[in-house]
């Protein structure tokens, strides 16, 4: 009988996932520059707390009380964060940001439920493969050097600003000038599905097509 050893035991990296969620929230809000521009840097602690709360709840199955204890806040704060309606907050917040009135959002105060909804939205995006693009680009760029495959960071750089899921036509618009490993993008993208769900799935699709063509 084999007793499973430490090497087989998996421990989820809550810290890193919470950080990824936090970075994604910042991306949703328009990036660090926008947050500075709207003088909303005071939002960051609340966003870090809500990112952590969502990860602890979704990944580790913690209840409100456990999360509150862990994060040093109240059970009601956590409850407000985790029960916030993502759709409602997304609609209101996005409207304000799109109209360039980010500085007027809740009179510069980030309400608990808004922070929670943003973290929930960011967590969902990450789970669906839409990692914060800067972070993804950073890792892809490092791996490109290691494996000496240089097209993935170029693709990521060119698609910056696209709001995934996205149609293959929109991808084509951004990448039509590219030649990847000797193949024009025009030849690669034809068999793509109509909708591409995330930057990482786009990279995977391109890699598969190149492999087939070779």
């Amino acid at each position: 009988m084999k007793v499973i050893q430490e090497s087989d035991i998996q421990e989820r990296d809550v810290d890193f996932l919470a950080l990824r969620v936090f970075l994604k929230v910042i991306e949703i809000l328009g990036g660090p520059a926008k947050i500075i521009e709207y003088r909303n840097l005071t939002w960051l602690p609340s966003l870090m707390v809500s990112s952590y709360a969502v990860v602890l709840h979704e990944e580790m199955g913690y209840g409100y009380e456990e999360i509150a204890k862990f994060l040093g806040t109240t059970k009601n704060t956590i409850k407000a964060m985790l029960s916030a309606s993502v759709e409602l907050v997304k609609e209101k917040l996005m409207e304000a940001l799109e109209e360039g009135e980010g500085d007027k959002v809740e009179e510069n105060k980030l309400k608990t439920h808004v922070a929670g909804a943003l973290a929930k939205l960011a967590y969902k995006e990450i789970k669906e493969g839409r990692e914060e693009l800067g972070l993804l680009s950073h890792f892809v760029s490092h791996l490109s050097d290691v494996y000496q495959i240089y097209w993935p960071p170029i693709v990521l750089k060119k698609i910056k600003g696209l709001d995934f899921p996205v149609t293959k036509e929109k991808i084509y618009e951004k990448l039509k000038e590219l030649t990847i490993e000797g193949f024009k993008f025009d030849e690669i993208y034809r068999d793509f599905p109509d909708t591409i769900h995330s930057p990482s799935s786009l990279l995977k699709l391109i890699a598969e097509k190149i492999k087939q063509k070779k």
Binding site: Q10, R12, G61
Partner: peptide
């Protein structure tokens, strides 16, 4: 942490 247990089981 049930998440760790399930990751280990997987």
């Amino acid at each position: 942490n049930v998440a760790n247990l399930l990751d280990t089981l997987a």
